[in-house]
Amino acid sequence: MSAIVSVRDLRKSYGAIEAVRGISFDVEAGEVFGLLGPNGAGKTTTVEILEGLRRADSGTVTVAGIDVTRDPRGVKDRIGVQLQASAFPLHLTSREVVELFAICYERRVDAQALLATVDLADRTGQWNEKLSGGQRQRLSIATALVNEPRVLFLDEPTTGLDPQARRNLWDLVRRIREGGTTVLLTTHYMDEAEVLCDRVAIMDAGRILSLDSPRALIEALLRRGFSKPVIHQSASLEDVFLDLTGHEMRED
């Protein structure tokens, strides 16, 4: 395995606020890598620098073989992005949104097939602003896939989604990974990181505190003598919720 994303001593400040304070990490090709941390930890800033949307103050960032600071546009051509708090132009159908992004990448794309891969085959003619939260997030991922990216960046992809929609999105991320695309995602949900990521970097206050596979991190913690009050409860409230309301996606 080789590193497809390589970050060395990355720093970024907004005025007096140091958002990212010298972080380094590698993402291996083909893995799902998670940047984990509370809000304000510097996850989004880091990801936006990697995507060529923000300039770093110092440090080097290489994505898919391209130095991001030198050639932000070249990077944009090789990656797919799903941003936090972004939207699509109003009054366009899902299919048209995908076609619009294909134009942006100067590519031809089978919009119908692409929408089918994100389970939106039956929503191609619907105006994008009328989609539910989960559907919109999947449309967003479809637009991130039009250029067959080497690396897919997902910034808090499941924030604000209901449990069914989250699980559905996890399945989609796994399928994308099986297709050979490297995925770098940020999240503040621990369960999401645990089930989805091959490796996670735990960030807080602009620094990476720890980086390993979720299992290894947990084992290391246990080896240090950590013990949680053991409650023999092999199901959670979420399991109850999903049992009652069903696992299948809601098309609201």
Partner: peptide, 13 residues
Amino acid sequence: RGVLRRIFATPLD
């Protein structure tokens, strides 16, 4: 609405 941010995350000039 963040539409421009998304569009300029593509290589579009």
